[in-house]
Amino acid sequence: MRRFFTFIFLLTSLLSAQPELKTHLAYASLLYNQEKYFDAVTEAKRVEFFDSTKQFAFETNFLIAQSYKRGNKLSDAAVYFTKAEINARNQQEFLQSKIEQIKVNILRRAFTQVNNQLDKLESDSRFSGDSSAFKYWRGWNYLFNDEWEKASELFGENDSTAQLKILCEQVQKKKYSVSFAKGLSVVLPGAGQFYTGNYFSGILSLGWNVLWGYVTVKAFNAERTFDGMAIGSLLWLRFYNGNLTNAEKFAKERNEQASDEALQFLQKNYQGPKP
């Protein structure tokens, strides 16, 4: 009889343990939904600590990682998505945590790492049906690496991502060639600045170069060789170099601006899956 009661007691305890952890995990999820990410991590970690049988290991680690990601703690998020992957109970959970790792790494701009991870997934026969998803995230990886043309090619392979393809093409069109801008300024000072739309700077650059070029040439013509060399090297050359540097700087700035605007547009307006 005593054995029977002991058995009943243990059974009750065991049955009660699961709802306790489950309830607390639901509470952690609620905190996450309320955007209380710090508290969500705390409570999910609490469940993880007391979950001696690791029955909720995937859920807790996944929730912790998502909360860290929302809190912009991307390195911590990557660690916990990896832990979720280790504790995945099936193929779907494994893939889900892998994709989340890839998304975090895209945001961290770990370009090579993302490509390697996608290469591995693509070569895995278990996920042969998910190749369009892998291409999609590879496209985002190129997009975050400022390679809009390659991103556009990848998005173009799928009809559902035509909107992204168009956006990438638009950004690519907006971009200025840095070497072309510099080359223009080599031939005609200020022309590179004109090309990038910085007209005032272009006029100033042209003016300074014409002035000091004229003074230098005049000095040489008057056989004041030393004056010519001094003015040519100290003033003309300095303005000529400045003109080249400016052309390069403006082209890069314009390109960065175009990329940033596109990324901000995607963040605010794009409705599809985002990293």
Binding site: I8, T12, S13, S16, A17, V47, F50
Partner: peptide, 12 residues
């Protein structure tokens, strides 16, 4: 009793 005892003991 077992349930209530456990609830107190096991509460996280």
């Amino acid at each position: 009793m077992a349930s209530s005892l456990f609830c107190q003991e096991a509460s996280l």
